[in-house]
Design a protein around this nucleic acid. Structure first.
Length: 286
DNA sequence: ACTATATCCTGTATGC
DNA sequence: TGCATACAGGATATAG
């Protein structure tokens, strides 16, 4: 599942793949991935012809590919989205949804997406800061992020801390995997009310999230090739380096107690029942 | 404004 | 073998 580190790996791949290249033709093979483009699939394809890409940008899990004319191609990988750079003669990747050809006759840019939670749209005037992303908060790797301001904001919420971490309007880029990893590092239960955490604890948690995503990014550079992110979790990084996610029944790498999996927001949360205790439940159980 | 849940999607794994 | 169900989960619409 692409979260911030995986999306950044894709962004870096796209820099060399598209910057300076001019679109010659676009084919929309499935309309769903362009559902957020206001003009519809035909307009999407037509309006891109003749545009020249600049350097791709990212905020949280969103990508945007600016054009020299000031507009941008906005992209989200969702659960299973991939950008591929393939020669025209190469067979289409599975679940290929949109193809971009270039005037230089070089490799095509192909957007594949099995589950189609991802999508593409044109953002008018969005080269510097797409208006569509106004509600998306800065991510932890953004140099403009103010950790103090973020910590204070988090501590105003009564929701469980994991809900807050996953809320892209508060801090962006964190998904289910890195949320669990960060909470494990900070020894926090996912349902701890955010407004019951000390400022120091919130800072510790955010630093843990920063650390785990930075490490993942470093590993991602080696275990993914330039334009392919394995969304099914079989990459080396996920197998080797996760401390919490997916470790149901396996010993906690700190204390040895078996890790547990619990339903959470239509997905799962993994935690150590000993290192990451619930204040709410402890209060009830006594 | 804040909080919580349902929904979209399809391939894989599992149970009967 | 076939059918049904659970699961993976990011973002958003909707309800409270």
């Amino acid at each position: 599942m692409p979260e911030l580190p995986e999306v950044e790996v894709v962004r870096r791949g796209l820099v060399t793949a598209v910057a300076g290249r001019t679109v010659s033709d676009v084919q929309v093979l499935h309309t769903r991935p362009v559902r957020r483009h206001p003009g519809g699939p035909e307009d999407f394809a037509q309006s891109l012809v003749g545009r020249t890409f600049a350097e791709p940008k990212r905020r949280g899990k969103y990508l945007w590919l600016p054009f020299a004319d000031g507009d941008a191609l906005l992209a989200h990988l969702g659960m299973s989205g991939q950008f591929r750079l393939d020669g025209q003669e190469q067979p289409l990747p599975p679940h290929c949804r949109v193809m971009f050809g270039f005037t230089d006759g070089g490799p095509q840019l192909r957007f594949a997406d099995q589950r189609m939670f991802g999508g593409l749209a044109i953002s008018p005037g969005g080269a510097d800061a797409p208006a569509e992303l106004a509600h998306i908060a800065l991510d932890l790797l953004d140099p403009e992020l103010d950790l103090s301001v973020l910590a204070a904001r988090i501590r105003t919420r009564s929701s469980g801390i994991k809900r807050v971490l996953l809320n892209q309007e508060i801090v962006s880029g964190i998904g289910n995997i890195y949320a669990d990893e960060s909470l494990w590092l900070a020894k926090l239960h996912y349902d701890t009310p955010a407004d019951r955490l000390s400022r120091a604890k919130v800072i510790e948690l955010l630093q843990a999230a920063h650390q785990v995503m930075t490490a993942a990014l470093a590993a991602g550079g080696t275990s993914f090739d330039s334009l392919y992110v394995n969304v099914n979790g079989s990459s080396g990084y996920f197998e080797r380096s996760l401390n919490a996610y997916g470790r149901e029944g396996l010993p906690c790498l700190r204390c040895g107690r078996p890790m547990v999996r619990e339903p959470f927001m239509n997905r799962s949360s993994f935690r150590c029942p000993s290192c990451q205790r619930s204040p709410r439940r402890d209060a009830v159980r006594g």
